[in-house]
Design a binder for these strands. Sequence first.
DNA 1: GTGTGCCTAAACATGG
DNA 2: CCCATGTTTAGGCACA
Length: 694
Amino acid sequence: MMQESGTEATSNGPASQNRAASVEDGARNARPNSATSVDVTAADLIHLQPQQALQVARQILLQQQHQQQQQQQQQQQQQLQLQQGTDLKSPKDNENQPSLQVPVSVAMMTPQVITPQQMQQILQQQVLSPQQLQVLLQQQQALMLQQQQLQEFYKKQQEQLHLQLLQQQHAGKQSKEQQQQAQQLAFQQQLMQVQQLQQQHLLNLQRQGLLTIQPGQTALPLHSLTQGINPAELQQLWKEVTNLKEENNSNGRRGLDLSSPQPPKKPLLNQHASTNGQYMSHSLKREGSTLDDYHHSHHSHPLYGHGVCKWPGCEAVFEDFQSFLKHLNNEHALDDRSTAQCRVQMQVVQQLELQLAKDKERLQAMMTHLHVKSTEPKPTPQPLNLVSSVTLSKTAPPEASPPLSLPQTPTTPTAPLTPLSQAHSVITPNSLHHSVGPMRRRYSDKYNMPISPDIVQNKEFYMNAEVRPPFTYASLIRQGILESPEKQLTLNEIYNWFTRMFAYFRRNAATWKGTIRTNLSQHKCFVRVEDEFGSFWTVDDEEFKCGRHIQRGRPQKYTADENFDELLVQSPALVKNIQTSLGYGPALSAAFQASMAENNIPLYTTASIGSPTLNSLANAIREEMIGAMDHGNSNGSDSSPGRSPLPAMHHIKEEPLDPEDHEGPLSLVTTANHSPDFDHHRDYDDDQGHDDML
DNA sequence: GTGTGCCTAAACATGG
DNA sequence: CCCATGTTTAGGCACA
């Protein structure tokens, strides 16, 4: 928990920086031209080629952005006129310029949102894994939610400003302009304050891993920051809220009541509906009844759910909706704090949008890549997602396609390159209909596919996308250990490796950490070694290839016809501890294992009887170790500071042997504990120990 | 239907 | 007592 390192969130590579920058640049560059270029609806995307669909979608978004920008410009002009003219407008003016009621801030909130429906349409053309789809949809939904909240807040903000301005109006025309100027000043000060809060908030988000802002990418968040705060916008924002007086005049005095309907806002909502299908459903719903009805009868305020105030950081509980409304008006009224929170929320939304843009870019690269690949093999119309691809891969003879030799030439550094899916299956749109639930089948398990190539090639992808890596915990732990300089990691370092390498494991730490501990204990391939500074874990790759677990429960029956030699060879309990009981340093232990592997000799211990070769080699290593230990422990480990790379001679937990099995130091009988299928995969021994790259 | 592998939760033990 | 670490067991799920 406490070791959730704070550095992972910023570990994006330069490639993603470039990608994000290009997205931003593209958006900026496209704006001036987009008005004349794109005239495609989301529905048209269905008829497009998969590669084109996303680009068109992006063009649509850019077009929408441009329209919004135009609206903003219009508003600026209109507000300029308003400022130059009299401060108060007649209702007629209001009717003539309905766009005045469109808050710039609200327009800013919906720059790049595609509806889930649109997203589905697009995605169903593509080749996607359920995980990727899930991630996209979650991001999209989060965006929608936040936008709704922001819109509600801005409505309320405007209404409250209406009231204030109405009061000012009653105070007399003479002082009105002065008051406005004073308020404008105060407002700007508030926003400046908010800017600082935003930066803090961004930093927090970054630390929490919610945002991934690369060092070279600072221009983006800074840009959005300044974009949200620049003086022009301050002016705009101020004018915009001050121009709502007429609206209030025509509507009567219902300023503070959030439940008060806002007929002039309907065009705004519908306008959004044109760009946001999900919101359209809301707006249409609202059009059927007043907002009052909406809030009171449906009680589905975006800031109110399950009896809890959903204002950021609030979470106050309320019995009924009315008390919530009171709370909303009292606790979250227009003040410095609320304004700051609102602006922060805007930044959050902007960042999410940015992230979405990046992910869409990534998605496009993925789809382009996979689409090309999908035409190569026979287009089997079956399987579908990675799960199935795993299954397929398992049916294929491993030696026919050694994972290590897969010539992967990434089209994009972040596109997930899943050798198996590319080699053996085609991800079809049907896969989208499959559940996006947790994957129970991960490759590298039964046939012990080395996962290094995939992890290495998709490193950046897994680091940034909250996609569950399609590997078993045991495979991942092994990878982490083998990646370490000393081929050994403490439990804590294993945790850190997971959080560092996989965005997915930056959440639900309690769950996966527990699973890691269970795996370490249950898998015979993980060997715990103790030294004077603590304990660490190493990998017995041979055992990993066998994929055995520590015997749980009652020992399996050992039939007399089992081959005794094989039992010797397969002694996992011995491997689990006797090896380390000799006090071999992990590095040498790894070397030892490698030697064993090269000789195709299963790793067990010097104590175990077996081949003379093994015995002699083990003895030689032991002597070497003893000599080395005389020189003390010198070389430190980067990944495990404060711990000696050489374990102390004293060790370790004793293997809990069954009493009837514990006969003599050699414990040969423990072999009886093994699974009946212990020797199923001996043919893959030649693969061993060569995939500890990185 | 059954066996197997994996994941997850939980209980428990141990040591700092 | 709390927490981290480690072990063990049980149940659920997916798959062959």
